[in-house]
Amino acid sequence: MKTYTKQKLTFEQFLEQCLESGLYELVDGEIVEVRVTRNHDDVADFTADSFKDEIKRLNLNYVVKNPAVFKTITANGIEQGRKPDVSVIDKDKWRSNRSAYAALEEPIQLAVEVTSTNWEDDYIDKLDEYQRLGITEYWIVDYLAIGLREYLGNPKVPAVFIFLPAVFIFLLDAEGKYQCTHFRGSERIVSRTFPELTLTAEQILTA
């Protein structure tokens, strides 16, 4: 991960200054390049394609973007610019202003992060920011099993969950807090957004 700016930027400044090529996020006021492996890309692409197939099969009112940028706010009030590896967005919301740039400030339906060396961003920082924004469903696809410690804060996940590849799905409850379920091996993924999805954890993790 390479940092390109020292000046603390707002989300709007990030959109103006961010390079068009490559994958960048706004983290703590700085433009940060996110670099991923081919394996990471394959897992993200397989997941996005699976969502697209389900949307087409059932004629669901969603679009899948890989990636789309939106604004989150940290507990300290800092604006962040996040780009999930896969974003599922309400089609009407996406098309409400089709001449606009891809940036969004409202919660999307589902965000997927495929873990890499900056796994703490996915398990701690983005988890808190996505919950705070109100993203209904959040997936962490940990195909490398690199979530090496117990989550902090709320919700807490027992240490037994770690060290093995898994798909973690966080769903907002009635109080706006994430509740987590994990899936491994031949276990069928259970998704609120795609309740008829027939994928297993293994299919995603070994894509």
Rank of each mutant, 00 (worst) to 15 (best):
Q131A: 09
P84V: 05
I89M: 05
Q109T: 15
G153Y: 08
V86L: 05
W139C: 04
P107F: 10
E137A: 05
W94M: 07
I78S: 08
R98S: 09
P84Q: 06
L144H: 03
K71Q: 15
N118D: 13
T115I: 03
T74F: 00
L148C: 04
W94A: 10
R149Q: 12
P158K: 03
G77I: 14
P107K: 11
G77Q: 13
E113K: 10
I89S: 02
I162R: 15
G176P: 04
V141S: 02
K177Q: 15
Y130S: 04
N76V: 00
K93M: 15
G134K: 09
T72E: 04
D128V: 14
V157H: 00
S99F: 07
G153H: 06
P158R: 02
D125P: 00
D122N: 09
E120I: 13
I124T: 03
S116T: 09
E113G: 07
Q80R: 14
A75F: 00
I135Y: 06
E79S: 11
P84G: 06
E106F: 13
W139V: 07
E175L: 08
V157S: 00
K83A: 15
P158H: 02
L164K: 15
F161V: 03
R132T: 12
E129R: 02
Y101Q: 10
T115S: 07
R82Q: 11
S116K: 07
G81S: 14
I73G: 08
A111N: 02
I108W: 02
V86F: 03
L127P: 01
I146W: 00
V157Q: 06
R132Q: 14
D85Q: 03
E150G: 02
Q179M: 03
L144V: 02
D173T: 08
G77E: 11
S96N: 14
D85G: 08
G147Q: 05
L172R: 12
D142S: 03
Y178N: 06
Y123R: 04
